[in-house]
Design a protein around this nucleic acid. Structure first.
Length: 269
DNA sequence: GGCCAGGCTGAAG
DNA sequence: CTTCAGCCTGGC
């Protein structure tokens, strides 16, 4: 284990509950597991700005600093955005320690296709089933766990096998995404150089991906922090707290971060 | 047991 | 261009 000092505070429990990730798990009291690609790390908070991590320094710097967006000072952003809207102010205070994770693009695409018309627990169990059946098995010092399935492994799955994961009518969507990515028709790495709007448009070509899902992939997979996914919770806030007007543009490049604070606040306050 | 969930598609107005 | 029914299935 290694101690990492942070410039800014972090709250792993809030991150886990913030709805942007579906596989983060608290495996023991206060010990959280995160997975991205083939990397797995276990983290415990020691104080607000100090954490203990299970990986070495090199891996922390190469993989997890970007994942946790440690180059961004969220306290500073909150300072900038404070005073623009009272509901947003309360949300920022409530969600102290929240961060936008930069997760694996492929995992985000599939996860948010699955998310439509599902509750968060249902999304999680669906993804767990996919990982258990089609993901590479890994054994760590704490647990046996499966990586997220590759495009090819999902493409090899039969319709019945996919159905058994509780995908329902989304199964063909998953298949379409796997097909496009495996065939190189959609190169998730190459499109990372595109502008927000171009990236958005290229994701919309996948069957089952609409505006909300595409924006989630942009925000949580490509760290495009100006994007604001509008789901039922956010539209409820727009209706009931913003007087029917979408006020997110007032936050400019921090729109996606503010969306996340507000989403978490609206659901958990 | 029934209701509804972090939307999307395709068809109809 | 905008609206809207219907959709699989699991969790509460």
């Amino acid at each position: 284990m290694m101690i990492v000092k942070l410039k800014d505070e972090i709250d792993l429990k809030i991150i886990q509950k913030s709805g942007q990730c579906f596989r983060v798990k608290e495996i023991k009291d206060g010990l959280f597991r995160f997975i991205t690609g083939k990397n797995i790390v276990y983290i415990r908070e020691k104080s607000k700005k100090e954490i203990e991590v299970s990986c070495d320094e090199k891996t922390w710097k190469n993989v997890w600093e970007e994942y946790f967006d440690l180059g961004t000072d969220y306290a500073e952003i909150c300072k900038e955005e404070r005073g623009k809207n009272s509901f947003a102010d309360a949300a920022m205070e409530f969600g102290r320690g929240l961060r936008i994770l930069k997760q694996d693009e492929w995992e985000m695409l599939i996860s948010f296709i699955i998310s439509q018309r599902k509750s968060i627990p249902a999304i999680s169990s669906c993804i767990e089933a996919l990982c258990d059946k089609f993901g590479e098995k890994i054994e760590t010092e704490y647990e046996k766990v499966n990586l997220f399935p590759t495009p090819q492994s999902l493409l090899n799955a039969s319709a019945d096998e996919l159905k058994a994961c509780g995908l329902g009518y989304r199964a063909p969507y998953i298949r379409d995404a796997a097909m496009k990515v495996a065939a190189g028709e959609l190169d998730l790495n190459a499109i990372s150089t595109l502008s927000d709007d171009e990236l958005f448009e290229s994701l919309l070509k996948v069957h089952g991906v609409g505006k909300k899902v595409a924006n989630c992939v942009l925000l949580f997979g490509y760290a495009r922090k100006e994007r604001v996914p509008i789901d039922v919770w956010i539209s409820r806030v727009i209706d009931e707290e913003f007087g029917g007007e979408n006020l997110f543009p007032i936050f400019g490049k921090n729109g996606g971060i503010m969306q996340q604070y507000i989403f978490y606040y609206e659901k958990n306050r």
